[in-house]
Every structure is written in C-alpha cells, then in structure tokens.
C-alpha cells in the first residue's frame, strides 16, 4: 500500500512543467522534496493531491487510479497543507479548524479537536479571530485543520497520507522543531507523509526519503545519506557546498 507516481508528465501550453516523475510514497515514511524555486515542487504536490490531472503517466493511491477517485473519496485518503489565502470574515480559529472535520459529528470530535489544539499550541488563541493572527499563528491553525481532516475519518492512520507544501514557512525555530516532532509522530503511527522543505539539514535529519528536483524533474531520489552529497547538491542549487560528517552538517556559500 502506497502512493505510486509513475512516469508523470505535466504540460501547460507546450511548457513542460514536470517530466518523467516516478517515485513512491510509503506509509510510515517521511518523503521530502528539495529543490530551487520553480523546480515544480508545488505543481507536483497539486498533481499528487488530485487537484489537477497529469498530462501523461499515472498516480495510484493504494493501487487505485487517482483519476478514478471522487472528490469525496480523495478527501478520505489525504489531507493537504498549502500556502493559504486570506480570510475576509471574522471566523474564529475554532471555526477554521472545525472545517477540517469531514465526518459526521460524533463523540470523538471534541476529544480529537482538543488533542490537536494542544499539539499545535493553539489552545490559547482558539477563540480569537483568525484574520488578525500573525503569519506563523495562521500556519499553525491551518496545520491543525489539516491534522483534524486526516484524523476525522476513523481515527486510524492506515492508508492515509498528508501532503505538506512548505509547512515550516513563517514558523520560528521553537514551532519548527515542535512541528517536525508532530510530523515524525504521525509517520510513526503509519501515516505516509510528503513535504516540501527548504532547509537541507532539517530534511537530512528527519526524512526517510529525499527527492531532489530541478527543472521539472526528480534528479535524485533515495535515502538522505545517499542523495545528499556534495556533487548532487552543487548541481541542484548551483552553490558551493561543504559537508561535515560528525555531526552531519551541510554548509553552503
């Protein structure tokens, strides 16, 4: 059981945005996409979440073709965190988080909501108006909504996936660290996780698999130790790299 991406290609107006993308996202693993701006990372997330159809190739969720899944069916299998939009009305944080709950309201609802609020440290702001929060706070709220979404279905993690488009943007190092811990715990519980990061060192420490993207292609894919070497990184980012081994640290200049 996994998400299989097979030879995916995405073309807009004769512009090939993604080409020959093939890899798997396995349950219980954190797969991280790294790459410079414009490499096609967010487009790939949109294809995998089923917002758009690939021009050719296929994406399978647990052996089922993504194109064959209804909107509702997709919503049962994955939740997505992306760069969010402004909200123009005075919805409270609680309102926004509750929107993630796609199941009927049952006894679990309040319990899970409280759990997640605590995890994402939004208990103190839960009655505040969402649109007056800072960028980092809004991020945490949307993350809580994303988590509530995936937990709302039947509170088990099998065959479910979370796609995170730059989950750490706008977060201070305290919440960055905290969020990484949350994501690790989710993976330990069997959830499959795909995320886009920009911090190579964090990606090395916390990922099971790394996809290095450039110009719409996944150039290198595999374990962090295998993929994150001087040669590959210099080719992807066009910067000089220096890799220290104990403790592992990548420096660029």
């Amino acid at each position: 059981m996994s998400i299989e991406i097979k030879d995916v290609r995405y073309v807009v107006n004769d512009n090939c945005l993604l080409d020959k993308i093939s890899f798997d996202i396995n349950p219980g693993e954190i797969t991280t996409i790294l790459g410079p701006n414009g490499a096609g990372k967010s487009t790939l997330i949109k294809l995998i979440s089923g917002d758009m159809k690939p021009s050719s190739g296929e994406i399978l969720y647990d052996k089922i073709l993504l194109n064959k899944l209804t909107l509702e069916n997709k919503s049962h299998r994955r939740s997505v965190l992306s760069q969010s939009q402004n909200i123009n009305f005075d919805f409270t944080v609680r309102d926004i988080v509750e929107m993630g709950w796609i199941n009927d309201l049952n006894n679990n609802f309040e319990k899970i909501l409280n759990e997640i609020s605590k995890e994402c440290s939004i208990e103190d702001i839960i009655e505040r108006k969402f649109r007056y929060l800072s960028g980092g706070e809004q991020k945490r709220v949307h993350l809580a909504r994303t988590l509530l979404h995936i937990k709302s279905i039947d509170n088990i993690y099998e065959n479910k996936y979370i796609l995170l488009d730059e989950p750490l943007a706008n977060l201070d190092i305290f919440y960055e660290f905290k969020l990484i811990k949350i994501i690790r715990k989710l993976a330990k519980n069997g959830l499959g996780i795909l995320m886009i990061l920009h911090d190579i060192n964090l990606a090395y420490k916390f990922s099971n698999k790394i996809a290095l993207m450039l110009d719409g292609k996944v150039k290198y894919f595999g374990n962090p130790e295998k993929v994150l070497n001087k040669k590959n990184l210099e080719k992807i980012y066009g910067l000089k790299m220096k890799i220290f081994s104990k403790p592992f640290f990548i420096k660029y200049y």
Partner: peptide, 17 residues
Amino acid sequence: IDIIQIGELEASRLGIN
C-alpha cells in the same frame, strides 16, 4: 459556503464540489 472561505482549492480537498 463557510468552508469555501479557506479557499476554493482547500474546500475541494475537503471533498466539496
């Protein structure tokens, strides 16, 4: 209409047509 406030794409990811 409530849920669409977080964005059309986000709403569709929550299963709304």
